[in-house]
Simulated assay, not measured.
Amino acid sequence: MVNWLDIETKWRKKWNEGKDFEANPNEKEKKFITVAYPYPNSPQHIGHGRTYTLADVHARYYRMKGYNVLFPMGFHYTGTPILGMAKRVEAGDAEIIDGLKNIYHVPEDAIKTFVEPIKIADYFHEEIKAGMVEMGYSIDWRREFTTIDPVYQKFIEWQINTLKEKNLIMQGSHPVGWCPKDQNPVSQHDTMGDVEPDFTEYILIKFKFDDYIIPTATLRPETLFGVTNLWVNPQTNYKKITVDGEKWIVSEECARKLEFLDRKISYDGEISGSDLVGKEVTVPHRNEKILMLEASFVESHTGTGLVMSVPAHAPFDYQALVDFKKDQPLGSE
């Protein structure tokens, strides 16, 4: 019977003693192999195995083709997930401590040190590296680094500045998940349970109401010409705000969200939804007046807290209008 473990051990030892994966300057054509750095907040898992095996196959292929291949490995220490883990350990969070102890089999003495984020990163750095060595990856471990090494940080600064000087990158803006408590962006891995931040991009339609704008958020701006009315919740207290010099009426939740969208907001007062019911707004591009009608189904946390009604394109709006008419006294318009 073949002892596969002995074979693995034999070849790992041979590669290590022969320094087969150490890339030094020579006359051969160069190939530099890089791959996403592992994030050391847990041991190596099957996803790591897939990712780094692909890179290793790539590196070995080019060595066989006669290239001088450099395959280094970095470890991604920066980011908020490790900071979040440290805060939870410090707070005595039973769930994370149980996971570290019984799933990852981290010794209790090590867990006690995990109140320091660097200790978490260092521990799982070595766990992941041990797994890579055991897998026999053809990495030049002399070129091992982390993203908090001063030399690496200088490299990133040089890289960004060089690209900017060549006009190959520019600073802009794009939507990100945002934590109001910590005042910084968050990604999926920053959240409890790996929840992907969700973005819905709306088009605002601005309806004129006296000296104010009543904006509604829609995914179907082309249906503007079929708008028959606006829906407003009479139980909601709406905010009068100034947005970049323009006066708006929106829900409190909408006003709060606008503060995170690079808008200049000031609060001028409030108005009850019941005071808006029955009032008229002017439809843009049609210059026609339509009514604001009451609807308890309008949610203040969705969009602007006011909804444009297009019964020709939205069955829900059509049914809401049918129900609204049934509730009106006989003889009313």
Results as ranks from 00 to 15, higher is better:
Cys254His: 05
Phe155Ala: 00
Ile290Leu: 11
Leu258Pro: 00
Asp122Phe: 06
Thr9Ala: 11
Trp141Val: 02
Asp122Thr: 08
Met73Cys: 01
Thr53Val: 15
Ala295Glu: 06
Lys289Pro: 09
Glu253Trp: 05
Gly273Asn: 07
Phe114Gly: 07
Tyr61Lys: 08
Lys119Leu: 09
Asp210Gln: 05
Ser332Tyr: 07
Phe114Met: 09
Glu116Gly: 00
Lys166Ser: 07
Val322Pro: 03
Asp56Trp: 10
Lys154Ala: 01
Pro25Gly: 03
Ile156Gly: 00
Gly245Arg: 01
Leu293Trp: 07
Phe75Glu: 02
Pro81Ser: 08
Trp231Asn: 02
Gly131Asp: 12
Ser309Met: 10
Ile96Met: 13
Glu27Val: 01
Ala255Ile: 08
Val310Trp: 10
His189Lys: 11
Val186Phe: 12
Arg220Val: 03
Tyr267Trp: 09
Lys208Ile: 06
Thr242Tyr: 00
Lys279Asp: 01
Tyr61Phe: 15
Tyr238Asp: 04
Gly193His: 13
Phe207Glu: 09
Asp190Cys: 02
Thr162Met: 13
Asn287Cys: 04
Val283Phe: 14
Lys325His: 08
Glu134Cys: 05
Thr34Cys: 01
Gly245Pro: 00
Val2Asp: 09
Phe225Ser: 11
Tyr267Cys: 00
Leu330Phe: 11
Glu259Cys: 07
Pro175Ser: 06
Glu201Gln: 15
Ile128Met: 14
Ala36Tyr: 07
Pro197Cys: 10
Thr146Ser: 04
Asn68Thr: 03
Asp317Pro: 12
Lys325Arg: 13
Val307Leu: 11
Ile82Tyr: 06
His174Glu: 15
Pro185Phe: 13
His48Arg: 03
His301Phe: 10
Phe32Trp: 14
Pro43Glu: 04
Glu157Ala: 01
Ala59Asn: 07
Asp275Ala: 11
Gly172Thr: 14
Pro185Val: 08
Val89Thr: 05
Phe21Ala: 02
Glu270Val: 06
Trp158Ser: 02
Met192Thr: 09
Phe75Ile: 03
Asp327Asn: 14
Phe209Met: 02
Asn229Tyr: 11
Gly193Trp: 15
Tyr137Pro: 05
Leu230Gln: 07
Ile241Met: 05
Glu270Cys: 07
Ala312Met: 12
Arg63Trp: 04
Glu196Tyr: 13
Met292Arg: 03
Val310Phe: 04
Gly99Pro: 03
Asp211Ser: 08
Pro25Lys: 10
Glu134His: 10
Lys28Glu: 12
Asp210Arg: 13
Ser274Phe: 14
Arg142Asp: 09
Gly131Ala: 10
Ala314Tyr: 12
Ser300Phe: 09
Thr80Glu: 14
Val250Trp: 03
Asp98Glu: 14
Lys325Gly: 00
Gly331Asp: 06
Ala314Pro: 05
Val322Asn: 05
Trp11Ala: 01
Gln171Trp: 15
Leu230Ser: 04
Leu224Glu: 11
Ser251Met: 08
Lys181Gln: 15
Val227Gln: 13
Lys326His: 08
Met308His: 06
Val69Lys: 05
Tyr104Asp: 12
Lys10Trp: 13
Glu27Ser: 10
Phe155Tyr: 09
Leu230Cys: 08
Gln153Leu: 01
Ile205Pro: 02
Leu219Gln: 12
Phe207Thr: 01
Val2Phe: 06
Phe207Ala: 01
Ser42Thr: 03
Arg286Gly: 00
Leu83Asp: 12
Glu90Trp: 07
Glu126Phe: 06
Val322Glu: 14
Glu27Tyr: 08
Asp275Leu: 13
Lys239Pro: 02
Ile118Tyr: 10
Lys164Ser: 15
Met132Asn: 08
Gly74Ile: 01
Glu333Asp: 05
Ala86Lys: 09
Glu270Ser: 14
